[in-house]
Amino acid sequence: MSVSAATDPMLPRRYRVRKTWKELADVSTMELEALEGQSMAFQPGQFNMLYAFGVGEVAISISGDPAEEGKLVHTIRDVGAVSGALASVSDGDMIGVRGPFGSAWPVAEQTGRHIVFVAGGLGLAPLRPAIYHVLNNRDQYAGLTVVYGSRSPHDLLYAEEVRGWKSRFDTEIEVTVDHAEPGWTGQVGVVTVPLDRALAGNNGAEVSAFVCGPEIMMRFSVMSLKAAGVSEDKIWISMERNMKCAIGFCGHCQFGGDFICRDGPVFRHDHVAKLINRKEV
C-alpha cells in the first residue's frame, strides 16, 4: 500500500491569496500562502489542482520560482467557469490546492548545454520556473535562448519581465507576435521564424530544448529543432488533456499508455513522438 494511503489525495489544502494582479485582459497571476501545513516545494513544470469554492477544480501550472520558498505562484487565463473564478480572486481570498503533481522540466540535469525555451501564448507560464532556474544558475549553462510568440502585442505575458531578461548580456530573447498592432516595432510571424534564426547560429548537438504552447505550435517547433540537429531525446514538451483527479484515477488525461497527470505533463519528445502527430488520440 502506498504511503499516501493514509491521507486522501483528493482532499485540498487551503491557501490564502496573498496578492493578485492582472497580467492581460483575461489573465491574472496570484501569489499564495499555505494556511495549513508546510509551504509547497515543487519542480519546474509541475502543476496543482486549484479549487474555487462552489465552482470547481482545474489543473494550473506553477509559474513561480522554485528557489523562492514559501511562495506559490499561478497564472490563469479565464476561459470558463472555474478558470474565470480563479482569475478573478482578490487579495485575501481563499482557494483550495492539491499538488504538486506531474513530471518536471529536467533543466537542472542539462547543465553545460545551450538551453532553448520555446513558448507559445500562456505556455510561457509553465516554462517560467525553468527559465528562472537557468537565469539563477546561468554560469552552469553554455547558453540561454528564449523564443516567445503570442497572438498580438496585447497578449504578451510577463512583458516587462521578459524585457528585463532581454537586457541581460548573457541571454538571447526573441519575441514575436502573429498579428502586429500600431506601435509594435518587434517581430511579426510564427515562433519558428525567430527559432530557426536563433538555431542557425548554434550547434544543434549542444542544445537542450523545452517547448510549451498549443499542440500545433509545439509540433512545428519540434520540426525546426530537429532540422537544426537537436536530437529528439534532448527535446521536452508539456501536454494538456482534460484532468479531473491528477492522480491517475479518473482516466480523463490518458494519452496512449500514459496518464498525462502522472507520466507527464512534461514528456521527452521521443516518448510521445509516435502518437503526437495523430489526430484524436
Binding site: S2, S4, P9, I247, G248, F249, R262
Partner: peptide, 14 residues
C-alpha cells in the same frame, strides 16, 4: 492496481 497505483491510493476503495 488502478486504485493503488504506487504513488496514490484511493482511501475509500482501500
Amino acid at each position: 492496481r488502478v486504485f493503488d497505483n504506487g504513488d496514490f491510493a484511493d482511501s475509500g476503495y482501500t
